[in-house]
Amino acid sequence: MEVRTIKVFTTVDNINLHTQVVDMSMTYGQQFGPTYLDGADVTKIKPHNSHEGKTFYVLPNDDTLRVEAFEYYHTTDPSFLGRYMSALNHTKKWKYPQVNGLTSIKWADNNCYLATALLTLQQIELKFNPPALQDAYYRARAGEAANFCALILAYCNKTVGELGDVRETMSYLFQHANLDSCKRVLNVVCKTCGQQQTTLKGVEAVMYMGTLSYEQFKKGVQIPCTCGKQATKYLVQQESPFVMMSAPPAQYELKHGTFTCASEYTGNYQCGHYKHITSKETLYCIDGALLTKSSEYKGPITDVFYKENSYTTTIK
């Protein structure tokens, strides 16, 4: 009895394709271990004539594949690729409408935090270190965002349907971005203890939790000093293409032309909904596939993004 075979390709990165001759009487799992086709788990399936010449994702289970996976995804987590594939199996079914010149995501599976993050990423200057993220990001900007969303979920250790947080998501993504040249110098002034300067680099240099107003941050924000008295913390120097200011959701007025974009969060910790506000020729609110415009805006804002380049204080 002759062994019926077909020729397929296996890959971990969709760049390096490895030619395989597979036995049609055995499952993919018996031949390769966990195997995925377009995100779908085909591990328990036997090869079919229609699979001839198709590319299958496999887990990096030998040295060659491990090197290829690390170079593309910059992670050695053995569960990463499987999590990416199972997320992709959902995100490829989502709709990605162009809204006001940006790629958004039609609401499904509690994905409003991903839509808000995706919209924000198209408006701030950011370059990702893992080629996987950078490639998928370019495709997302062009309207094909399924891979990018699935990668975000995998890097953030999230599953489809789980509630997510924009600030946490951005923080994970910033860790995989090139923020080497970003720098922030802060000064804390206390009447009792004097003053202390701190220099922050990388992710810490672009994120701040405690106030939404970048102007206020430049002037000074009140913080408790270690001595128990009130101290003032203010920005001395900022070198970065953008800054992200966050605070627990509270009524906040966004003035046209003073910011790049913002995240609105309605609801409580267990259950809520994100919308995205962007400042173009007027203010726009993007909620999944829905767009509304207004000249002014007041609502429960939790993150505001500002364009920056270089700032030095005039406070002496």
Rank of each mutant, 00 (worst) to 15 (best):
107 W>V: 02
37 L>D: 14
235 L>G: 00
162 E>V: 03
106 K>P: 05
79 S>Y: 10
153 L>G: 03
92 K>F: 06
308 E>L: 10
221 V>M: 10
171 S>R: 14
7 K>V: 10
107 W>R: 06
165 D>R: 00
59 L>N: 14
302 T>F: 00
157 N>D: 10
257 G>K: 06
230 Q>F: 15
122 Q>I: 04
32 F>W: 10
264 E>H: 06
169 T>V: 11
134 Q>N: 10
303 D>C: 03
55 T>C: 08
274 Y>W: 01
6 I>H: 07
176 H>F: 12
188 V>R: 09
167 R>L: 00
153 L>T: 06
61 N>D: 09
220 G>C: 03
184 R>E: 04
138 Y>A: 12
282 T>F: 09
265 Y>T: 00
183 K>C: 08
252 Y>F: 12
154 A>W: 03
34 P>V: 07
236 V>G: 00
179 L>W: 07
39 G>K: 06
115 A>G: 06
274 Y>H: 00
204 E>H: 13
114 L>D: 04
198 T>Q: 13
218 K>V: 06
163 L>R: 15
144 E>I: 06
65 L>F: 10
119 L>Q: 03
2 E>G: 12
266 T>I: 11
237 Q>E: 11
310 S>L: 14
109 D>W: 04
279 S>V: 06
45 I>D: 15
314 T>S: 10
261 C>L: 00
34 P>Q: 10
237 Q>M: 11
78 P>H: 09
161 G>Y: 05
221 V>D: 02
207 M>V: 09
221 V>T: 08
90 H>E: 12
51 H>Y: 06
248 P>M: 15
141 R>T: 10
301 I>N: 00
98 Q>L: 14
277 I>M: 02
292 T>E: 15
196 Q>F: 14
3 V>Y: 13
130 P>W: 02
270 Q>C: 11
188 V>C: 09
36 Y>M: 04
200 L>H: 15
249 P>L: 01
80 F>V: 05
205 A>R: 02
46 K>F: 11
244 M>V: 00
279 S>E: 01
151 L>T: 02
128 F>W: 12
5 T>Y: 13
152 I>P: 00
27 T>P: 10
173 L>N: 02
238 Q>E: 00
175 Q>S: 10
51 H>G: 04
161 G>K: 06
263 S>C: 12
213 S>M: 03
283 L>Y: 02
289 A>L: 08
246 S>C: 09
111 N>D: 00
304 V>L: 04
152 I>M: 11
83 R>F: 05
265 Y>R: 02
51 H>L: 05
165 D>P: 02
179 L>Q: 02
167 R>E: 02
232 T>P: 01
